[in-house]
């Protein structure tokens, strides 16, 4: 159970030597989100805001609430897997199951009504090189 996490942390440490002013070795064991809602709250809400409202400052974080673009599941999966502009990709951080869970959650909340559940297989298909 712990092994993949430990391995992932170690590999990340090897891949990104701390060239930036970053926290260092702390914070290596954050809680693991287990539902779509938890993934949203723990990973997405810091930018897309509670309720998927989005925000406007010098630029904008798009609202996910009442967003017809979520109608095509491949679109949010693609953005989460590949990133967009200042938004990082999450393919290294989230498992296919977690991505499927959060996309399903966003498509059925915040005023969106796209009830077809998204499967981890759909995410894995996009993750293949």
């Amino acid at each position: 159970m712990n092994r993949p996490i430990l391995l992932a942390t170690t590999l990340a440490a090897l891949a990104f030597p701390a060239l930036a002013d970053e926290p260092g070795p702390g914070g290596s064991k954050p809680p693991v989100p287990k539902t779509g809602e938890e993934v949203y709250v723990m990973m997405c809400q810091s930018c897309h805001m509670a309720g998927g409202k989005g925000a406007v400052g010098a630029a904008a974080f798009p609202a996910l609430a009442n967003n017809p673009r979520l109608g095509t599941a491949a679109y949010p999966i693609y953005i989460i897997e590949k990133g967009k502009g200042g938004m990082p990709w999450f393919r290294d951080t989230l498992t296919p199951t977690q991505v499927a869970q959060v996309v399903t959650y966003m498509r059925t909340h915040f005023g969106n009504n796209f009830p077809d559940p998204v499967t981890p297989a759909e995410v894995e298909a996009m993750r293949k090189p």
Partner: peptide, 8 residues
């Protein structure tokens, strides 16, 4: 991930 959670 910890930063994302605290930021949310």
């Amino acid at each position: 991930p910890g930063g994302y959670r605290l930021g949310g």
